[in-house]
């Protein structure tokens, strides 16, 4: 059984009168348990729509998606019990402290605050949030620190499946590296399955076991970073994931919106 799978997933949105935007067109892939699977694509390629469907926040128009064998539409509550999602926007109550936000998150999962407070403090400290900042309003923390708190919240009750929607966007290089190490550690030590969306080619190369390239709502390629590089190598010269992306989507930077 795959930890995560999609078949012919399709989703469109209404934009203005009579207009529809196709966000996903028949997307299908499967992620093995304990794998770090990257979805690589430019802005507007459908990455976040895909993650939202898997997180039960959106209903697909057609197709099927399963998390640990649970259908995201018909068994949404079961799916919610086994996933966590970290998105680009740190979704917090800005006036609450990191600790208060984490305890709220734990209670939503039915775990009393007193049972996790020590672990919450430890996780925050491990991610470099000093003790005094753990009790200050989130709005007083930097963007990088807020994103680390988002990661800590997702790890507070370790989920079997972690959905990471561009978790390192906007982080400085050091914070980015720390978050990446944490993701890798989670997979290595807890066996967590990770679906990671990113438009950072280097991140995908370094972190992911396999990568799918999503462009205008369609999967245009899938494979390990090495396989994808081999696919486009012609003259024995070193190839980067950036080269792979542009070769397979047929796009230049100027085309990105």
């Amino acid at each position: 059984m795959y930890a995560l799978s999609c078949e012919s997933l399709t989703k469109s949105f209404r934009k203005g009168k009579g207009k529809r935007v196709q966000a996903l067109c028949g997307v299908g892939f499967a992620v093995r348990a304990g794998e770090i699977y990257g979805i690589l694509g430019p802005n507007g390629s459908g990455k976040s729509t895909l993650v939202r469907i898997l997180a039960t926040l959106l209903l697909p128009d057609a197709g099927r998606a399963q998390v640990l064998g649970y259908d995201v539409v018909r068994q949404a509550r079961r799916v919610r019990e086994v996933i966590h999602r970290v998105s680009t926007e740190a979704a917090f109550f800005k006036k609450l402290s990191p600790l208060e936000n984490l305890l709220y998150g734990a209670r939503l999962y039915g775990v009393p605050g007193r049972k996790v407070i020590r672990r919450a403090r430890g996780l925050l400290a491990e991610l470099g949030i000093p003790e005094d900042k753990q009790v200050r309003p989130m709005e007083q923390l930097s963007r990088g620190q807020q994103q680390k708190v988002a990661v800590a919240r997702a790890l507070l009750i370790p989920p079997p499946v972690l959905l990471l929607d561009e978790p390192t966007t906007g982080l400085d290089p050091r914070s980015k590296r720390e978050v990446q190490e944490l993701i890798r550690g989670l997979r290595d030590e807890e066996g967590t399955t990770v679906l990671l969306t990113t438009h950072d080619m280097e991140e995908a190369d370094r972190l992911c076991d396999r990568v799918a390239i999503l462009d205008e709502g369609r999967l245009v390629a899938e494979g390990s970073p090495r396989e994808l590089k081999e696919q486009i190598r012609t003259d024995g010269q070193p190839v980067s994931m950036e080269d792979v992306f542009f070769a397979l989507t047929g796009k230049e930077w100027d085309d990105e919106g």
Partner: peptide
């Protein structure tokens, strides 16, 4: 407004 709606609606509580 707080930006937490997706987080709350994604939780497994009823």
């Amino acid at each position: 407004w707080e930006g937490t709606i997706e987080y709350t609606f994604m939780a497994p509580s009823l």
